Amino acid sequence: MTGRNQTAVTEFLLQGLPIESERKNLFYALFLVMYVTTVLGNLLIIFLIRLDSQLHTPMYLFLSNLSFSDLCFSSVTMPKLLHNMQSQVPSIPYAGCLTQMYFFMLFGDLESFFLVAMAYDRYVAICFPLHYTTIMSPRLCLSLVALSWALTTLDAMLHTLLMARLCFCADNVIPHFFCDMSALLKLSCSDTQVNELVIFIMGGLILVIPFLLIILSYARIVLSILKVPSARGIYKAFSTCGSHLAVVSLFYGTVIGLYLCPSTDNSTLKDMVMAMMYAIVTPMLNPFIYSLRNRDMKGALGKVFFKKKTSFSV
């Protein structure tokens, strides 16, 4: 077997979700509403942060990038899922499948990196409040954003190039609603040991280490609060970190449940449900979590509607 791509498959068939035909229209409407909500919610977050100068801080710089990655993350899979639900032949071209896999990994990894950056921002804000502006300088913040984009782009490109060298000989049915990397590896008739080794190594760097850094940041935050325990300090820390902790729990909880929990007989269904949780549900809920739990976001939203109301009354 040469290193060149010798695939005999020109397209894949996405098996999709196990939905009964009589309920397909209902689920189509539900997924359409979820996708529109995700797009509008994350665009609103980005719009408010750009509009309100009081939100031009490191925390909201990371939040705007997180919202952008959520918007793109959901857009990688949802339009194709909606299209295939109305299609008689839910197919995707070979090149389109690799492209979808690349962007799915890119924006999924970005979410992990931005959650780490936001955890570090909260750590500095609570543990070193007097030096916050010095430590979280604009240069450092932009460097963290640029580094996140660079590392995730390289990681997604590495996995995509390794996948492109594999051969797919006969079976082209993917038991998923998108081109999942693990599902593609199972279909390949080439040796996938290199791919699996890279997945193991890069998975630790991209997911496990960021998760441990988040845990470490919040452990330091808790220790800092316990040194000077007060109801006001605890409330301030919880109000500052509550929304971020909720997003971290949603994202990493589903990822850990998908990749670290033991497989069962219905592992395919479990994989699809868990993938929907972190790829579709989490990006939809993030804007609600941040806007409802964050006083600054609610204030910015109120300013927008108040200005609109006053302009109409003139």
Rank of each mutant, 00 (worst) to 15 (best):
R165S: 08
R165I: 03
L187C: 05
K227T: 09
L223E: 15
R165T: 06
A150W: 01
S143G: 03
W149G: 07
S182G: 14
S182W: 06
C189D: 01
K236Y: 15
Y235T: 10
P229W: 12
S137D: 06
A164Q: 05
P210L: 06
S230F: 04
A219R: 10
I225A: 13
S217I: 09
H159W: 04
I174L: 03
A164Y: 03
C189T: 04
P210G: 12
C189S: 11
L223K: 07
V145H: 07
L162Y: 11
A146Q: 12
R165M: 11
A146M: 12
Y218F: 15
D191G: 00
D155N: 14
D180T: 00
G233Q: 07
D155M: 03
Y218N: 11
R220H: 12
D171Q: 04
S217M: 05
L140W: 06
L212I: 10
L162C: 09
T160L: 03
K227A: 12
V222I: 09
F177M: 14
L142D: 05
T152Q: 14
L226Q: 14
A150I: 03
Y218L: 09
M202I: 05
I201M: 13
I214T: 04
T134P: 03
T192P: 03
F211H: 09
S143L: 15
H176L: 06
A156D: 05
A156K: 01
V173N: 09
C167T: 09
T134I: 11
L158P: 00
I199M: 13
L151N: 10
M163G: 01
S188E: 00
V222R: 01
I215V: 15
A237T: 14
T153P: 00
L147S: 13
N172A: 15
M202S: 15
M136T: 05
I199Q: 10
S224L: 04
A231C: 08
